[in-house]
């Protein structure tokens, strides 16, 4: 599977990564190399093989419906790069 420059641009957009125009071509080359290598998985017949959903035999833990968390708006904001009156602040979003 070879990946072209436009694909890298599209994927970078999906991942919200600003990849400089000059990096698109080299990145396409690197990714193509990796995907060509990964192609070897196609040799394996996986028909009827279940996809792995959990690597250990363990039942999902359930929690009681108790309020045990919250009331910490100050602690929540101390690392915020944009914070005001306990709100996170971002450039205006237009819907």
């Amino acid at each position: 599977m070879s990946v072209d420059k436009d694909t890298v641009r599209r994927i970078a957009k999906l991942a919200r990564l600003a990849v400089p125009e000059s990096r698109l071509e080299p990145m396409a080359g690197e990714l193509s190399g990796i995907f060509q290598w990964v192609e070897m998985l196609c040799e394996v017949n996986v028909e009827g093989v279940p996809t792995m959903t959990s690597v250990v035999a363990q039942k999902l833990k359930w929690r009681k419906d108790d309020v045990t968390d919250g009331n910490q708006a100050d602690a929540l904001m101390i690392n915020a790069p944009g914070g005001e009156d306990h709100f996170f602040v971002v450039p205006k979003v237009v819907e």
Binding site: L17, L31, L41, V44, V46, P50
Partner: peptide, 26 residues
Amino acid sequence: ILIGTYVLSAGYYDAYYSRAQKLRTL
């Protein structure tokens, strides 16, 4: 991140991610 985004994106999920999780089972 780019590899991961690509293998999960529409049209490639089955060929990559789903297949890889089957291989994990094997």
